[in-house]
Design a binder for these strands. Structure first.
Lengths: 137, 137
DNA sequence: TATTGTTATACTCTATAACTATA
DNA sequence: TATAGTTATAGAGTATAACAATA
């Protein structure tokens, strides 16, 4: 079982990151979930159900999220050629531009927080975080 | 500027933790925000505005959150003796029990994810996470 | 029959604006 | 006048249940 100190440190990082992401998203009228959808679609072309499963959301929730993102021109629905019931979700060029912009802002926003760590410590942190990882993640 | 690998690792941890916390909260009909409120109140007795500022929420949002938590008997509003405009928020015994239960479940839920790290590595991780921290956090 | 996705419904979360009471 | 908090309102996020189309 993890120590209190470890659980607390992880919780603190999580809420700090969520705050940063929420603020960056808000600047672009994007919720945390929309931000995450956009991030996922950068290198994937999932169908609705896959996306919902990955995010841990109901498929009906997914319909609403994609409706709103599509209305803004950030993603689009495509017919799946192999299964006529399925709908693929694809990011648009405008969505891709926004996703990259948000990612840059995130890097810049995290810079001050991480300024306390030198290069060697940063590498260590990446290794430790990647080791603390379930195979399926 | 942090590397892509570091930003990605932090984002991954954040979404993993959020997922775990959301699932634990859902079991008890608590949102992530309600969970966080309960966690904060374990050792604090803030007024409405302080709570809202800490969470980065509008005070009107806070009113709704506390309304619902109070209706469930998890927190209660108290008059502030020094400023008759102010309202202090206090956790109830039932709220405290639930908060501790959730915290235990979180520790247990994180155990498998962290099983890849030995004791020395865990200590290292805690130190690195605490070093990567703005003074005000 | 089972699966994919949408729609209808209801509730929570959230912010903005307008308000009351107190400082 | 300014601050603390609530209420009214509106939109987004969420799940459940019922449904249509396809497998």
């Amino acid at each position: 079982m993890p120590s209190d100190a470890l659980v607390d440190a992880l919780a603190r990082v999580t809420f700090h990151m969520s705050g940063v992401l929420t603020r960056i998203g808000a600047k672009h009228d994007l919720s945390l979930t929309q931000l995450r959808v956009l991030g996922l679609l950068r290198d994937r072309r999932p169908r609705m159900t896959e996306l919902a499963e990955f995010l841990g959301l109901d498929k009906s929730t997914m319909s609403g999220l994609i409706d709103r993102a599509e209305r803004r021109g950030l993603v689009k629905r495509d017919k799946n050629p192999e299964d006529r019931r399925a709908v693929d979700v694809v990011i648009t060029p405008a969505g891709l531009v926004l996703a990259e912009q948000v990612y840059d802002e995130l890097r810049r926003a995290l810079a001050p927080t991480l300024s306390g760590l030198g290069p060697a410590h940063r590498d260590q942190l990446v290794e430790l975080l990647n080791a603390a990882r379930k195979p399926s993640d």
